[in-house]
């Protein structure tokens, strides 16, 4: 498993699936909510990411439903995907702590 930083859409999609399985449109809405409205994924980006994450074993199809004659497919995070997200969260947390420590050391009033 690689520990290279995840791209933001990948991180947000994994986060959207962390608590429960979701269908494609649900993931798009959830990603927007998680990012505070800053990231608005589109269908092409979402399904390219799902294609890659499925190949990597991080995500898999949970179930399918037909609603109003239309297929709705739910995706869920695999254990491997959850572990990868956990690694990313730890990495981001370490960076955040380091940034906070450095900011506290910064002289008050501007440039040194």
């Amino acid at each position: 498993m690689t520990d290279a930083a995840l791209r933001e859409p990948t991180f947000l999609i994994l986060t959207a699936l962390a608590a429960r399985p979701q269908h494609g449109y649900g993931i798009l809405l959830d990603v927007e909510e998680i990012s505070g409205g800053r990231v608005k994924l589109r269908a092409g980006t979402l399904y390219t990411a799902l294609d890659r994450m499925t190949a990597d074993g991080w995500v898999r199809v949970d179930r399918e439903q037909v609603v109003d004659g239309r297929l709705r497919r739910y995706y869920r995070l695999t254990d491997e995907g959850a572990a990868r997200l956990e690694v990313e969260v730890r990495r981001m947390r370490a960076h955040t702590r380091a940034a906070e420590r450095r900011l506290r050391l910064r002289p008050a009033g501007g440039t040194a």
Binding site: G24, Y25, L28, A43, L46, Y47, L71, R72, R73
Partner: peptide, 26 residues
């Protein structure tokens, strides 16, 4: 994924009659 993507695209389209330029590019 074709039918599934179509549902997602239509769900996010609202009252539009044409795909947006960003949809097209994406």
């Amino acid at each position: 994924h074709g039918e599934e993507m179509l549902v997602v695209l239509m769900s996010g389209a609202g009252e539009r009659e044409r795909p947006t330029a960003r949809d097209f590019a994406d």
